[in-house]
Every structure is written in structure tokens, then in C-alpha cells.
Design a protein around this nucleic acid. Sequence first.
DNA 1: CGCTCAGATGATCAAGATTCTCATTTCTAT
DNA 2: ATAGAAATGAGAATCTTGATCATCTGAGCG
Lengths: 141, 141
Amino acid sequence: METSNLKKAGLKVTLPRMKILEILETSETRHLTAEAIYRELLESGEEIGLATVYRVLTQFEAAGLVCRLHLEGNQAVFELERGGHHDHIVCNQCGRVEEFFDETIERRQREVAQHHGFSIKDHALVLYGDCNDHACPHRPA
Amino acid sequence: METSNLKKAGLKVTLPRMKILEILETSETRHLTAEAIYRELLESGEEIGLATVYRVLTQFEAAGLVCRLHLEGNQAVFELERGGHHDHIVCNQCGRVEEFFDETIERRQREVAQHHGFSIKDHALVLYGDCNDHACPHRPA
DNA sequence: CGCTCAGATGATCAAGATTCTCATTTCTAT
DNA sequence: ATAGAAATGAGAATCTTGATCATCTGAGCG
Ligand SMILES: [Mn+2]
Ligand SMILES: [Mn+2]
Ligand SMILES: [Zn+2]
Ligand SMILES: [Zn+2]
């Protein structure tokens, strides 16, 4: 088990936290809403409350284990922190999410911020378009 | 009057729509929440409901008169559509919002999307940082 | 192994943002 | 001015997320 991640983060190793982490690690969908995680827990027979899912995800975020994104709609999505920063492309048709990292964009962002006298700390970049690859498997729920 | 914009958009010219458009045109703050607009209406003595503000803003957005952004927090902000696309920098300290347009970033976005087989239709880019210029006038509400 | 208690959980309630409902009012066109 | 269609306002409803608080659980200790 990788309960070590929890311990390292200063979080007590509890059943809900382990199960939520496991779902984040093993789900074929990288970007999950709190409700999607909650549903997977129910399906696997775990009696974990939705409030706990939100609470734990917020704690995971604060601990640097996951990051929270707003890709579309009103629900935040969460993904395991796997070291490198990246941004996202979302398909308007089917909801598929692809990841990318572009050093040119990253550098220009820093330069633009500097031009305006800002010290940039973070950024949010999402591209929206059509994946020209239907039938794609990521149909909306 | 510029009720022509409303007529052109196929929207009936009503008092709430004119007043809301006027606030968007004359407010010294370019990016306004629905509630901020609602408050300005109250202060100027207009008896317009918050639901109407939201409804009208959504219609303006559909008509291409305004665009809706999510800069921070949970409230959307609206700004008059003035022709050119641009992105935003937000100060984490004081909430100041600056606008920018960078052709290099725009081009790289298209190229990245193409690499992934996407036809890009839109994007959302917000930089977060510290404007090193306090005392700035844009103090949070 | 069983005890203890700080910390975690779950059920429910609450809050904030936005939309919906529907009776009433206002435009636009005669 | 009149009528019909569309818009408005008040409040209820919805959706997502966070707060409360009584109960439960896990890590350390004997
Ligand atoms: Mn990702
Ligand atoms: Mn702007
Ligand atoms: Zn697709
Ligand atoms: Zn500032």
C-alpha cells in the first residue's frame, strides 16, 4: 500500500482516505468530480459520505496530493498530482480531456506578467474545441 | 442612445436592459459581477430584480454583447464585448485585473490543439500573481 | 491485546450563486 | 388606445460546496 503518501502529508491513515486515494490512482479517468468519486465508492460498497469526499479532497489539495481544476460546467474536477504541471484541452462534443505542456506558452506567460509588473504565481489555461475523433470513449455522463 | 445595440441583437428595448447596458458602458470597473451591477442599479434608484440582472446578462452573452469570465472565487464577471479578444491577469493581493493579448500564446495554443487533433474553438487563460504596486485602487469589496 | 482521546466521519443543515416559476407588467405593433 | 407577445419581479428551487455536531476510529501506550 501507499499509505506512506498520507503519512507524509501528516494525515491520519483512515479507510475513507485510503479508498479515495485508491480511486484517484486506479480510475481510468484521470479527472474526477467529487460526485464521480462518491459514486465509485458507493459502487464498490463503501459507506462514505459525500461531505467526507469533499473534505478529504480539500485536504489532499492542501497537502499537495491532488490538484483541483475547473474545466467546464460548475463542478470542480480533481486529479492526482504527478509531479509536472500541465494544462488541458477539453472536447466540446464528448467531454474528452487531454493534457499538454508547452514551454513557449509558460515562458510567454511569465514575460507578459513581468511587462505588467506582476510576479506570476499561478495560472489557469483550458483550451476548448472539437476532438475530431468520434467515436471517442469519453462520452459525457 | 445606443438602444441600437439591443435592437440589432434582436432584443426588445426595455428599461432594465438599457440600464444594465449603461452600467456596463459607464462603470469605471470593466469587469463586474451580476451582484455588483445589481447594487449599482439599486444605488441609482432603479427597482430591478437580481433575477432580471442574471437573465439579461445571459441574453447579452448569447447576443455577443458581453462576455462572461471566471477570474476567481465563485462569481462570474461580465464585461462589454469591445471587439478584440484578450486574456487577464489578476492580483492575488488586491484583486486588480489587467488585460493582455499575446499573439505568441494564441498561436501556440492553436498549434498545441492541432497536435492533439483538436479544432480549437475557445480558450480561458488567467494569470494569478502579485501586482507589485500597492497602494493600488482596486481593493477587494 | 484492550484503553484513551485527538482527530475523523456521516447525517444533516447551511450558504452562495444562479436559474426557474408564474402572476403581473411593459413593449411593440396595430 | 388596445391587444398580444415578451419581459419582469418576487420568491422558490437547484446545484455545488462547506459547516455543525454527535458518534466513531485509529495510533500510541500500558
Ligand atoms: Mn490533468
Ligand atoms: Mn477583460
Ligand atoms: Zn470528442
Ligand atoms: Zn495588488
